[in-house]
C-alpha cells in the first residue's frame, strides 16, 4: 500500500473537522476525493502532509507518519501541491522550482529534473527569470505541480488543481497529471470539485461529506452513483 489512513481525525482546535477517516491509495493508483466546500478536503490533505496535528494511523509505504512533521514527510517521498498553489511570489520561477529540491541530497541531478519540467511546461521555461507572482493562475498551477515533483516524490497530493483555471487549462493540467502518473508510475491523491474531469483520470474515489467518508468506489461506480451525479456532475 502506498498510503493508508486508519481512523484519522483532525481539526483546528475548536473541535474536529475530520472524523475517523479511513482510506487507501495503492501503488500507481490515482485516487480522487470529492466533496462540497467545507467538507474537510483540504484539512484531510494537511493532516496527511503533517501541517496540522492529527490522531489515528497514517501509513505511508507501511511506515506510520501520524507524528511526523511536514519537513520530514516530504523527505520520505510524499509531496503536496497545496490549495491555492502556495507560490513563493517574490522568488523567480526557477527559484520556486529549486525550492522543490531543497529536501533532496543529490543536488547534482537537480538540473536534469529542472530541464525535464521545463520541457513538460515550456511556458515555465520562458518565464524562468520572472517573479513567480507575475505568472497567470494556470502557470502557477503548473509551477506548483513541477515544484512538488522536483522533490522526486513517490506519492503526490494535489488539492484542487483546477481552482481558478479555465476549462481548457483544467483539461491540459489533468492530461499532464495523467501522463505524470503513467510515466513515473506515480501514486496520486487528488482533491477535486470538478468531478467529471477528476473521475476521468482516477482509478478510484471517495466522497467526503462533513468530515466523514460517505461513499467509496471505483471511478465508474462513482460516476454512475446518483449522489455524485446530482451534487457534482450536474445531470
Amino acid at each position: 500500500m502506498s498510503l493508508e489512513l486508519q481512523g484519522v481525525s483532525a481539526g483546528y482546535g475548536a473541535g474536529d473537522v475530520l472524523h475517523e477517516i479511513s482510506l487507501d491509495v495503492r501503488p500507481g493508483e490515482v485516487v480522487v476525493i470529492l466533496g462540497a466546500n467545507g467538507a474537510g478536503k483540504t484539512t484531510l490533505m494537511r493532516a496527511v502532509s503533517g501541517v496540522i496535528p492529527r490522531r489515528g494511523r497514517i501509513l505511508f509505504e507501511g511506515k506510520d507518519i501520524s507524528r511526523t512533521g511536514p519537513e520530514q514527510i516530504v523527505r520520505l517521498g510524499l509531496a503536496q501541491v497545496p490549495q491555492g498553489r502556495g507560490t513563493f511570489v517574490d522568488l523567480t520561477v526557477e527559484e520556486n522550482l529549486r525550492t522543490g529540491a531543497l529536501s533532496r541530497r543529490d543536488s547534482a541531478r537537480v538540473n536534469e529534473d529542472l530541464d525535464r519540467w521545463y520541457t513538460t511546461y515550456p511556458r515555465l521555461a520562458e518565464r524562468r527569470r520572472q517573479k513567480a507572482g507575475l505568472l497567470s493562475g494556470g502557470e502557477q498551477q503548473m509551477l506548483a505541480v513541477s515544484r512538488a515533483m522536483m522533490s522526486r516524490p513517490r506519492l503526490l497530493l494535489c488539492d484542487e488543481p483546477s481552482l481558478g483555471l479555465s476549462p481548457r487549462l483544467t483539461q491540459e493540467l489533468f492530461a499532464s497529471l495523467r501522463s505524470i502518473n503513467e510515466e513515473w508510475d506515480m501514486s496520486m491523491l487528488i482533491v477535486e470539485q470538478n468531478a467529471a474531469i477528476a473521475l476521468g483520470i482516477a482509478t478510484r474515489g471517495y466522497l467526503l461529506e462533513v468530515g466523514t467518508i460517505a461513499r467509496a468506489g471505483s471511478a465508474d461506480e462513482l460516476s454512475d452513483s446518483d449522489a455524485v451525479r446530482a451534487a457534482y456532475l450536474g445531470y
Partner: peptide, 14 residues
C-alpha cells in the same frame, strides 16, 4: 527566502 516568502509552502517543500 522561501521561509520568509511563504512559511507554509516552505515547510511543505522541507
Amino acid at each position: 527566502r522561501a521561509a520568509a516568502s511563504n512559511p507554509d509552502s516552505a515547510s511543505l517543500v522541507g
